[in-house]
Design a protein around this nucleic acid. Structure first.
Lengths: 202, 202, 202, 202
DNA sequence: CATTAATCGAGACGGTACGTCTTGTCTTGCA
DNA sequence: TGCAAGACAAGACGTACCGTCTCGATTAATG
């Protein structure tokens, strides 16, 4: 009566996992977070509802998994300057959040997270921490380059950079097309001044 | 076109409106956005469910109205310096968003808004536009004081300032106690440098 | 400080009473007993709901009043023979119950009556007793004519005669066009034999 | 066309069907037709409301099914005489209609039926036709016995016999205790006399 | 003629049932 | 054991009524 790694019985069909994730992403774009139902996901995926609940305890976990699936934000490659790096980073963030599927869903998920500490924990580990680490790496590059004397307040920078994009898109509902440049220029100037770096002669 | 030249029929009881708003706010703090039901609101308010649906077409509209009710963020009084003003503004925002009632509810509402253009419109008019105007006023004070040469990119500043608080609280889940000072200092430095104002000697 | 028969204040508008009765009868034919609503009656009658409740305590009383309004079954005039009188009586009953308005409504009303003793009392007084008396009068004519030796069991006859029509129309859903003749012939034969009248030689 | 070659999915629980029927019958006796609610039935039956709506499209269909469930009136066994058979038949009918549960409910159901042709169809098939057939069988026995020369007008007899009981109980509200004997004697005499007369037209 | 009291249309109010929908669990038969 | 299908208990949603209540505006009889 031990149930270790040695699987017993029929193994899970990995195509089912993929079908669920794909169906959730497609449906989020079509009906939104609140309009998404487990029955619709199962039908779209061509599977039974039981196969979903065998994998995820609740609907929210299923959506969470589908949203964060492979969505780890990559640190953009070194462009040679802080301004270039920040612009690239902003483009990555804007690109992800402009995806109509995950768009509003992320906000709803944040609401859910606010009421569910377990989900919050997983969200932090999976999403927030790696992103913060990526931001830190990018800033360290600037220090190494000599563009900043020392590292700024990374927590604040992280909240500021992502939060600005979030607010721009989902609160102000502005057009994101030139946001990366504007945000990067602003952040770059801020970082240089807060890091007590004398302004360059430009 | 016979809107209401003179009232006909029994007029609405304003105490019912107040009871609904109060009940929603209290229940949001107790059970959260997802756990809130119309029946619970009616019971808590001591009214019938019909009286709610007479005022709001859906549960979401009711919650929206209760959240934004009288929540217009006041522009803090002039403290004599940009840094002081920004600190005060951050404190107001943090104060509102730390309210456990509206806390997660606001995020869920933002998710709802992303899927409902009508709600988005009302949210912008009621909430976003006044707040942006408040930010602008505060920055104009700084220009008049001579702390900045000219107004910065107000849309970007607005998204940055509020977005940072949002992200700090609901994505990073950091402690907000010293956020106002840190954010204000950061923003102040950024504004001064982006506005091409030479740094003072201090 | 006495408030006797002397009316004071605005008197009731008799056109309102008529409009209510007419609207109920018309609507019963259109939407049936269960589909009838007080609001629909008021709208059709061009009056306010309060004016209905000022006259009738409940919806059922209103319908009751509209159904029994002036529906007292008249005893048909003497045709000279029991068979003729019974045929005429059956025609009157069939005529009343074939009215599509009151048709199903009467059955629903009987269901209501079974659960409401007060309504039952009024129904008996207004409807059942006069009808039984009419039946008795008709049978007495036959005795006076010498067609029967003595009066039969009037309660049974009354239940039989009306009940047969009721069942024919609302349980069997048969065509009523030749029912009066068939029923009258049957009843006539039954009455003659139960009244110990020797069968005619034919 | 894939109706049910072989069953797929979880089969329905027959205990749920029984629980619904039992709960409806009990509640009809307690609160009557109009006072019966689907929620109360579900609670009494210890099941969910969805399980009721999975079986019946509306409340009325549920009540209909519960009332007619196994209520097929059995033809009483041969007593050796027409009078005896009719007395037994009358007792069966009175017995069924005196059941306080189905009592007023049947009348309300008849009202419902008058406004719903689909329900009427099912009522005729399930209830009326078998009962008429039973009446016919009983009368044929009398013909075979030689008590009647030939069969009377069966439609009329059927409407008369059941209709009389209906009217006696629900319109006149008389005591049913000696109704079977009185009705049987009356009907017996009527049948003997009408069956000895040549039927006029047919 | 002004007062008074009940009426009228309109519609808000508390309460409650309806029928639909969704969630997360359970139970079939087949693979 | 996994899987598709679908029944199950629970309960929220938004609609529709009921019978009561409040409005402002009539409308007679009374003072």
């Amino acid at each position: 009566m031990e149930h270790n790694g040695q699987q017993v019985g029929r193994p899970r069909d990995s195509r089912v996992d993929e079908a669920i994730t794909a169906a959730v992403q497609k449906l989020l774009g079509e009906v939104g977070y609140a309009g998404l139902t487990v029955a619709a996901v199962a039908e779209r995926a061509g599977i039974g509802r039981a196969s979903i609940y065998r994998r995820y305890a609740t609907k929210h976990e299923m959506i969470f998994a589908a949203i964060v699936h492979g969505e780890v934000l990559e640190v953009p490659p070194d462009t040679g300057s802080l301004l270039g790096d920040l612009t690239a980073l902003a483009r990555v963030i804007v690109g992800h959040l402009s995806n109509p599927a995950a768009a509003g869903a992320l906000m709803s998920l944040l609401g859910e997270i606010a009421a569910d500490p377990a989900l919050a924990e997983r969200f932090t580990t999976t999403f927030v921490a790696p992103e913060r680490a990526g931001n830190a790496e990018l800033l360290e590059r600037a220090v190494r380059r000599g563009e900043m004397e020392r590292l700024p307040d990374i927590d604040l920078f992280h909240a500021m950079f992502g939060g600005t994009v979030l607010s721009w898109l989902f609160i102000s509902h502005h057009d994101p097309h030139d946001l990366p440049e504007r945000l990067a220029r602003f952040a770059c100037a801020a970082l240089r001044s807060t890091a007590h770096q004398p302004l360059p002669s430009n």
